[in-house]
């Protein structure tokens, strides 16, 4: 029982990280109708920024985190401005190829500047492990990740549904032309979505590198792909879907690692995705609005 709870807790925590990354994928897909495959590498940039701020600049942890978030936000907005905005209206395959290109660019820049060897990342979490009973200890990273994820999800849901900017994002996702006719600045709104998604990626990067204390230029790519799957799993374009998809994916992955086979865990995750997509092609919470005409 103890081991099950501990596996479950770390699964939820891993799922929370996937969910934070998946939110960036799903929000960008919703508003710009594109898959931003460079999103995973923004996590890596966030991780390195925090790592360098702590080790080279000897910044306190809070300041390093803030720098990481700011750098990623600026990076996300810049990528959109330079690489994606000129392609608005171009075929989706061109945008997809560009996104993959940006992903390789970031990875190779990191390889060039920082080298290919993985570095040890000192956890940004200072919370001591929580001892529940003799056999059950939950790490500080797990607890902090779960709390941070829940807080961010609540804040983001409120932001999207209750604020003017959040509603504008929904309007632009649905119909750019009609949104413009309301007086919404579509370009600015899309930039804001990239900013939020990239800020979340920085947070995810900090949590990921603290839980698995290593960083390399490829740190972001596998979690990025997993989070993309989580977004599709939950229904791409849907914010609650990304949250649910991320959490489920993390839990399934961790429990299959623990009880079935750690080598098969990824295969099991993909198999579950395939089954879900066969049964419900729009993903768990993806919906087609039945619009009367």
């Amino acid at each position: 029982m103890n081991s099950f709870i501990s596996y479950l807790a770390s699964g939820i925590s891993l799922g929370g990280i996937y969910a934070l990354i998946a939110l960036g994928y799903t929000m960008v897909y919703g508003i710009a109708k594109m898959l931003n495959f460079a999103h995973g590498d923004v996590i890596m940039v966030g991780g390195y920024t925090i790592f360098l701020a702590i080790t080279s600049l000897s910044c306190p942890i809070w300041l390093s985190l803030l720098i990481g978030v700011l750098v990623c936000t600026a990076l996300g907005v810049t990528i959109e401005r330079i690489a994606y905005k000129p392609l608005r209206g171009a075929s989706s395959i061109s945008v997809l190829i560009t996104a993959i290109g940006v992903s390789y660019l970031l990875q190779n820049l990191a390889l060039n500047i920082l080298g290919s060897d993985a570095k040890t990342f000192k956890s940004v979490v200072t919370l001591k492990p929580i001892v529940i009973n003799e056999g059950l200890k939950i790490s500080g990273e797990t607890v902090v990740t779960i709390i941070v994820t829940v807080v961010i999800m609540i804040a983001l849901t409120l932001f999207i549904n209750k604020t003017k900017m959040g509603r504008a994002m929904q309007a632009v996702s649905e119909d750019k032309g009609a949104a413009q006719l309301m007086g919404i600045n579509v370009n600015f709104t899309i930039s804001m979505v990239f900013a939020i998604g990239s800020a979340l990626a920085a947070v995810a990067g900090a949590l990921l590198c603290s839980t698995y204390p290593q960083i390399s230029p490829y740190t972001g790519s596998m979690p990025g792909i997993k989070a993309f799957i989580a977004a599709v799993f939950g229904g791409i374009g849907s914010i609650p879907g990304a949250m649910l998809g991320g959490l489920l994916l993390g839990v399934i992955e961790n429990l299959s690692k623990a009880y079935i086979s750690s080598q098969l865990s990824d295969a099991i995750v993909f198999a579950v995705l395939i089954v879900v997509l066969i049964v419900k092609p729009t993903g768990l919470l993806g919906k087609k609005i039945n619009e009367k005409v």
Partner: peptide
């Protein structure tokens, strides 16, 4: 071209953006 996924109230509020 109403915003199908927003409520009637939210659509009207968008008009006052």
């Amino acid at each position: 071209r109403v915003f199908a996924g927003l409520t009637v109230y939210e659509n009207l509020i968008m008009g006052a953006y």
